[in-house]
Each structure stands twice: as structure tokens, then as C-alpha cells.
Measured scan of single mutants.
Amino acid sequence: KTYTFRVRIVDEETGEEKEIEVTAKSEEEAKKAAEELKKKYPNLKVELE
């Protein structure tokens, strides 16, 4: 079973919002993916929905 999570990304500089879908095998995995995004884009606000 896989879970699909919507991750909302807000670029703090431009105020631009993007939504991406993360497919993960567990909620834990999705959280890790969101953390990776935060590391990659430090000025983005990442929200897991």
C-alpha cells in the first residue's frame, strides 16, 4: 500500500505557492521526504497535508 501526500511549498521570497505530490510507503517516509525538501530549499515553507 502506498500513501500519496500533498506537500504545499511556499517560496518565502516570491510568495509563490506550489503543490507537489509525494508518494510514500508510510507517513514516516513522507515526513522524511518533506524534511529533505526543507534541506534542499531552505527558504521554502514546506507543509505536509
Rank of each mutant, 00 (worst) to 15 (best):
K1Y: 10
K1R: 11
K1M: 08
T2R: 10
T2Q: 10
T2M: 12
Y3N: 04
Y3A: 04
Y3P: 03
Y3D: 02
T4G: 04
T4W: 09
F5T: 01
F5D: 00
F5Y: 11
F5I: 14
F5N: 00
F5K: 01
R6I: 15
R6W: 14
R6E: 02
R6Q: 06
V7I: 15
V7Y: 10
V7Q: 00
V7A: 03
V7D: 00
R8H: 11
R8G: 03
R8Y: 14
R8Q: 07
R8A: 04
R8T: 13
I9E: 00
I9G: 01
I9F: 12
I9T: 03
V10P: 03
V10E: 03
D11L: 04
D11G: 00
D11V: 04
E12R: 09
E12C: 14
E12I: 13
E12S: 09
E13C: 12
E13Q: 11
E13G: 05
E13M: 10
T14F: 01
T14L: 02
T14M: 02
G15T: 01
G15P: 00
G15K: 03
G15A: 02
E16I: 08
E16V: 08
E16S: 05
E16K: 05
E16W: 14
E17I: 15
E17K: 05
E17R: 06
E17Q: 10
E17M: 13
E17Y: 13
K18A: 07
K18N: 08
K18Q: 12
E19W: 15
E19A: 08
E19H: 14
I20S: 01
I20Y: 09
I20G: 00
I20D: 00
I20L: 07
E21P: 02
E21W: 15
E21K: 08
V22A: 00
V22W: 07
V22Y: 07
T23K: 11
T23E: 12
T23A: 06
T23F: 14
T23N: 07
T23I: 13
A24Q: 01
A24K: 02
K25P: 10
K25V: 13
S26Q: 00
S26N: 10
S26E: 02
S26Y: 02
E27Q: 09
E27L: 15
E27F: 15
E27Y: 15
E28K: 08
E28Y: 09
E29R: 02
E29T: 04
E29K: 02
E29Y: 03
E29D: 11
A30G: 04
A30K: 01
K31M: 13
K31T: 07
K32A: 13
K32M: 12
A33W: 15
A33V: 14
A33M: 15
A33L: 13
A33F: 15
A33E: 06
A33H: 09
A34H: 07
A34P: 01
A34S: 05
E35Q: 11
E35T: 06
E36L: 11
E36C: 12
L37V: 05
L37A: 02
L37D: 01
L37M: 09
K38C: 11
K38E: 05
K38D: 02
K38I: 12
K39L: 11
K39W: 08
K39A: 10
K40T: 06
K40A: 09
K40V: 09
Y41G: 02
Y41A: 03
Y41K: 03
Y41L: 04
Y41I: 03
Y41P: 03
P42V: 04
P42R: 01
P42D: 03
P42T: 05
N43F: 09
N43K: 04
N43V: 04
N43A: 07
N43H: 12
N43Q: 07
L44M: 13
L44W: 13
L44I: 08
K45T: 11
K45Y: 08
K45A: 06
K45V: 10
K45E: 05
K45F: 11
V46Q: 03
V46D: 03
V46P: 03
E47Y: 15
E47L: 13
E47S: 11
E47M: 13
L48N: 05
L48A: 06
L48K: 04
E49Q: 15
E49K: 05
E49N: 11
E49T: 13
E49I: 15
E49P: 10
E49C: 08
